[in-house]
């Protein structure tokens, strides 16, 4: 019985989310466009997230290099460390870790902000004032998250590579130009473009789930907490699912 109820709840939730996606596209396409609010959200979601993304990326690059070195030394290919680290960061770890950090920071903040607005009737107040809350609150945030995550990923990759360069130099001496020459020589468009392309979908998922959970928040302040929490959990799971699909797709298209 509980399995049936859980399945029904899952299907209901999926259906509601599909409707929400439909509303996003219909609200986003129709004028009037909320350009000012979109820029404001790009600043909050993109610019203000960079310090956190930068710090975690730097540590990730440094730690990844330090962890990989012993294995490469064992096989006598220590010189390939920049290549290994570069490929790992650009193709997979950079986009996924940045997206997960982004989900934690932005997904929870959007979920809590819209959830709080919902339970304090601020969204209703917009609606009765003739302001379209879906366009003003949801479309701008989802679009900003979709546009900003790829930029953050590129910047995060650059910082992670810098961290990796310092990591390489802890136990050996490699010049800055040699390190980056090795990294860029090993990378091709088929490594970089699919990795960046999938981050648009990661960003879309994080923005959309945060808005969906916040917009449908209820049960007062407890509901706000639940919205923020479930926004992070669901968007993190979606990031891995999208990543899996993206890897399969690049395989099928022969881009690997």
């Amino acid at each position: 019985m509980s399995l049936i109820l859980s399945t029904k709840k899952f299907l209901d939730e999926t259906g509601n989310m599909a409707r929400f996606v439909g509303r996003f596209f219909s609200a986003g396409i129709r004028p009037r466009y909320e350009n000012k609010e979109l820029l404001n959200q790009c600043f909050i979601i993109g610019y203000q997230s960079f310090p956190l993304v930068g710090l975690t990326s730097f540590i990730m690059g440094l730690v990844l290099t330090m962890q990989l070195r012993p294995s490469l030394v064992d096989y006598g290919v220590e010189s390939q460390l920049p290549v290994m680290v570069g490929l790992a960061i650009v193709r997979e770890i950079g986009p996924v870790i940045t997206a997960l950090i982004f989900a934690g920071k932005i997904g929870s903040s959007i979920g809590a902000e819209l959830g709080s607005m919902k339970v304090t009737e601020q969204i209703d107040a917009m609606e009765v004032s003739g302001i379209k809350p879906f366009k003003y609150l949801v479309a701008t945030r989802v679009l900003a998250a979709t546009l900003m995550l790829p930029i953050l990923t590129i910047l995060g990759d650059a910082v992670a590579l810098f961290g990796a360069y310092l990591g390489v130099n802890i136990k050996s001496v490699t010049s800055f130009s040699l390190f980056f020459l090795q990294v860029f020589k090993s990378l091709s468009y088929s490594d970089v473009l699919p990795a960046i392309f999938k981050t648009f979908f990661f960003g879309f998922a994080v923005g959309l789930v945060g808005c969906y959970k916040g917009f449908n928040s209820n049960k007062g302040t407890q509901g706000v907490g639940i919205s923020a929490n479930s926004a992070v959990v669901l968007s993190s799971v979606l990031i891995f699912i999208i990543d899996l699909l993206a890897v399969q797709l690049t395989e099928v298209l022969g881009l690997n």
Partner: peptide
């Protein structure tokens, strides 16, 4: 419809119990 409702709402004010000011 959505647009006509927005126009109609311009003639109607609504004072919320919680005030619903944008914090």
């Amino acid at each position: 419809g959505e647009d006509e409702l927005d126009q109609a709402r311009a003639k109607i004010g609504f004072l919320f119990q919680s005030n619903a000011l944008y914090d």
